[in-house]
Simulated assay, not measured.
Amino acid sequence: MKKRIIALSLISTLVLASCGTKNNSSEQSSTTAATTAAETTAETTATAAESTTETVTEHETAAQNEVGFEGMTEVGADALNMGNYYVSVDSSSSMFKIADCILHVSDDGMNADIIIDSKSYDALFMGTEEDAKNAAEADLIKYTENKSGQSVFNVPVEALDKEIQCAALSAKKQEWYGRTLVFRADSLPDTAFREQRYATAESLGLKDGKYSIDVKLEGGSGKASISSPAEMTVKSGKATAVIEWSSDKYDKMVVNYLEYTPETADGHSKFEIPVSGFDYRMHVQAETTAMSEPHMIDYTIYFDSASIKESE
């Protein structure tokens, strides 16, 4: 497998510590084409919706996204090291497209720069749309413009992995629209946490050798899947796993800023990637070529240590 360090365009302007929902079934080859077509349609529809200026009708009919994940536990500022980190944000509205988000952790708590490509919103309010309608002007969060011409809203963050209410003021309609946001702790790098948050091959006492392990994928449109159990190799206390996608349209994966290229066979893209840890949602990205242009999509992969078996 080939890999290379990805250059991040924003590093030159901001020193960051680093960056950083559902099927778990293995699909038969005969369903690969149907799955790919379904995912393409879902992703293309979402992309088109996100680039459209919001109207009242769209607000009423726009697809509602699931946010967070079952059993999530709040992560406060006291669990994190001070610093600036890229963070993924789930939004309940397909109309509210966040291009990037930078989390700032300090002694005073957490806040985040929500970066939006368009000028679709004049202000944000951290609360419900009803509360926003009655809020004082001083409580509204106005945007600033960065060097790329994007809108940047600096918002307080109560906690990660918590549903937070946010209202956005449409620039065109001057109407408030409610959203639910979740700032994802699983998208932060290991260095962001004060304590280790997962098991490793070393802590589990895994000897060098071949294993199988159950894996669970979350993220994207929910149409793609990966094969489970997956093949895992442990060497010198480090684990890698072979991730086999339900489609052959994935041409790149990114794990901890390293890029991995696939082997493609029998309608599946296969990648051998490092297993950073077990029993937590490991953040990865995968690029699909199934749409009109390549699309990088955020996913998490859960490696279940209780399922590890030695291969014969």
Rank of each mutant, 00 (worst) to 15 (best):
I226K: 07
E163F: 07
Y211N: 02
S51A: 11
L10V: 14
T36L: 11
Q174K: 15
S236V: 03
S276W: 00
I98L: 13
F271L: 06
M1R: 14
K3D: 13
Y250C: 04
E39K: 08
E195T: 14
H268L: 02
S292K: 15
Y211F: 01
N23C: 01
T13L: 11
A49D: 07
Q165M: 12
V87E: 11
D108K: 12
F271R: 04
P156E: 02
I115S: 03
A42Q: 14
D113Y: 14
V15D: 12
G277V: 02
G71F: 04
S12M: 06
A77H: 11
V15H: 12
A135H: 03
V56E: 12
I6Y: 10
C166H: 07
A135D: 03
S30P: 00
T31V: 12
E293Q: 14
T61W: 02
S88W: 11
M110N: 04
Y299E: 01
P294V: 02
H295G: 00
S118V: 03
L217C: 06
V275N: 00
D90H: 09
F69Q: 04
S276N: 08
E310H: 04
Y86K: 15
H283Q: 09
I164D: 10
S307G: 01
V284A: 06
A99G: 12
G127H: 06
E272F: 01
D90K: 02
A290L: 04
G68C: 01
G267M: 00
G219Y: 15
S51T: 07
N84T: 12
L204M: 08
K3W: 11
L140R: 15
G267T: 00
E231H: 02
A123Q: 03
A38E: 04
I308D: 05
H59I: 05
S94N: 13
K22E: 08
E287D: 08
G83L: 12
F125W: 03
S118I: 05
G209N: 08
F153S: 06
T73C: 02
T73R: 15
E60P: 00
L140T: 12
A306W: 00
E130W: 00
I116D: 10
Y177N: 03
F96N: 10
E259M: 04
G220Q: 07
E54F: 08
E231A: 07
K142W: 09
K142Y: 14
E58G: 14
Y299V: 10
L204E: 03
A132G: 10
D214M: 04
T35W: 09
E129C: 06
A17Q: 15
A230M: 03
Y257M: 13
H104C: 08
N24G: 14
L8Q: 11
T300H: 08
I273A: 07
G71E: 08
A201E: 02
I297G: 04
Y86W: 13
A77N: 11
T31W: 08
Q196T: 08
Y86Q: 15
I98R: 09
E259G: 02
K173V: 13
P189K: 09
Q150S: 14
G219R: 15
S236R: 06
T264L: 02
E39T: 13
A199R: 08
E58K: 13
V254A: 13
E272M: 05
Q165D: 12
F96M: 10
T128K: 06
G20C: 12
